[in-house]
């Protein structure tokens, strides 16, 4: 079996990158984002990227890093409100954005990865999101046609992975990662921990190795918190 474990982000991305490519990235906000591989894209300097990702990071972290270096041409996202540099580039006409409702985005990625070119959903009917798209009536209700999404490269973050590319995510850091892993022509995963052969309970694998071609041990696990909300401790 071809070796899936690579030594670092640079070697794992080697031969996969080209200007103008489409990259899908897992994560929600700053939770479960492939920090190490984003740094790898930054170092590689690949440009004119179309990025499929629910959010666009913050100014100095996550995908925001690639915006700062002007490596991104277009974002396909549901919400980009946490990023000032994004706003500046967008208002200056330097950056394109395709807004997609969050659930529709997740389903478009899932569909793309599952070989489904399009599906009908109620989400967005009667709004700007449905403009220019086919509408169809089922049982007296209107639905809009949304297209499946695939990418030249998908990058994801997982808690654990093994040499076969099997992945296990952790808590709400799972988010978009399992579907993003399915939509790449090539998928590269970074994991916090590489488990030894046979170290996974087969029932506990979230993404089977068939979807993952390359895997590295993450070197960046900052996991920056966007909104640290706490409650006061009860008196003992």
């Amino acid at each position: 079996m071809a070796e899936k474990i690579f030594s670092d982000a640079r070697s794992a991305l080697d031969g996969l990158l080209f200007d103008g490519m489409t990259i899908a990235a897992g994560g929600f906000g700053l939770c479960g984002i492939p920090e190490t591989l984003i740094d790898g894209l930054l170092a590689a300097g690949v440009r004119n990227l179309t990025i499929i990702s629910n959010n666009a990071g913050v100014d100095d972290f996550g995908l925001g890093k690639l915006l700062r270096t002007r490596q991104v041409k277009k974002m396909i996202s549901s919400y980009v409100g946490e990023n000032k540099e994004f706003e500046r580039q967008y208002l200056a006409g330097e950056l394109e954005i395709e807004f997609c409702p969050q659930g529709t985005l997740a389903e478009r990625i899932r569909a793309g990865g599952a070989g489904i070119p399009g599906f009908y959903t109620r989400t967005g009917v009667g709004t700007l999101i449905a403009e220019g798209k086919e509408l169809k009536e089922f049982d007296g209700e209107r639905f809009v046609l949304e297209r499946g999404l695939t990418a030249d490269l998908a990058i994801v973050k997982a808690r654990r992975g093994d040499r076969y590319g099997n992945l296990q995510f952790r808590k709400s850091a799972r988010n978009f990662n399992p579907v993003v892993a399915t939509c790449g022509r090539v998928t590269v995963a970074e994991v916090e921990e590489i488990v030894p052969d046979g170290g996974f309970d087969p029932d506990a694998i979230h993404t089977p190795g068939v979807f993952v071609q390359r895997l590295i041990k993450a070197t960046s696990n900052e996991k920056r918190i966007e909104r640290r909300t706490v409650r006061q401790g009860e008196a003992v």
């Binding site: 700053l30 808590k171 966007e226 640290r228």
Partner: peptide, 20 residues
């Protein structure tokens, strides 16, 4: 509920990106 300071886990957030 929101976590106590010592319970904060960056991998547990809600849709508002708040720790939970």
């Amino acid at each position: 509920p929101y976590p106590l300071e010592r319970e904060v886990d960056p991998d547990i957030i809600n849709a508002g990106k708040e720790t939970i």
